[in-house]
Amino acid sequence: MSSARDRILGKIRSNLGRTTAPDAAAASSSRLAALGDETSPRPVWDDDDLSRFLRCFEAAAATWARVDTVADTGDAVATYLADKPAGNTVHLAPHPLLDDVSWPNTLTTARATHGREALVGVSVAELGVAETGSLVLFSGADTPTTLNFLPDYHIVLLRMDAVVPHFEDVWARMRERGGFPPRSFNFITGPSRTADVEQTLQLGAHGPRSLHLILVAARD
């Protein structure tokens, strides 16, 4: 008995009227013929990429603060949390960049390999995308995915020079890393939200209730 796989592929071939064996090279050249080698139409903006990024980021109900060096992140986090019922424990992704942060003694820090206990989570974004104001986080040894989704307060570090214009630039960066994409590749654009009750927008559906960006100006 043939497998469902073979039956499905067989039906596809017969219904496409295929007479020759499927050929990946032919498909690829036919894609080029159909689409050309130009990229998709995409958003454009007059000002610089960072301004566009921040504009979109803010429009998605996220907040941000700028620091000069990674070391200053600690104070920026403390300032952000000062008026919030977030306790004083901050769960940090095991990211080497966060080793350089000097934390004020008002905050207790804990390294987190997941987000299960975190009310406040701090992680590091690989990239920012100007076209949508999205942070890009790659899962990996130093970036637990669940730390992006379980905390109420998600704080993310991003280097100012890591903002790229479009999605295509993100794929290019990813390909440079070689191998497979990370298991989980998150574009995060603002805090969690829902409009499932009477189309009324409400933040903090299942994921973070707020998203705060620490934009790091200089490369140390």
Binding site: T132, F149, P181, P182, S184, F185, N186, T189, R193
Partner: peptide, 11 residues
């Protein structure tokens, strides 16, 4: 323009 979470999962 983009939903809050757009995720690519691989394996």
């Amino acid at each position: 323009e983009m939903t809050a979470y757009t995720t690519m999962v691989t394996g």
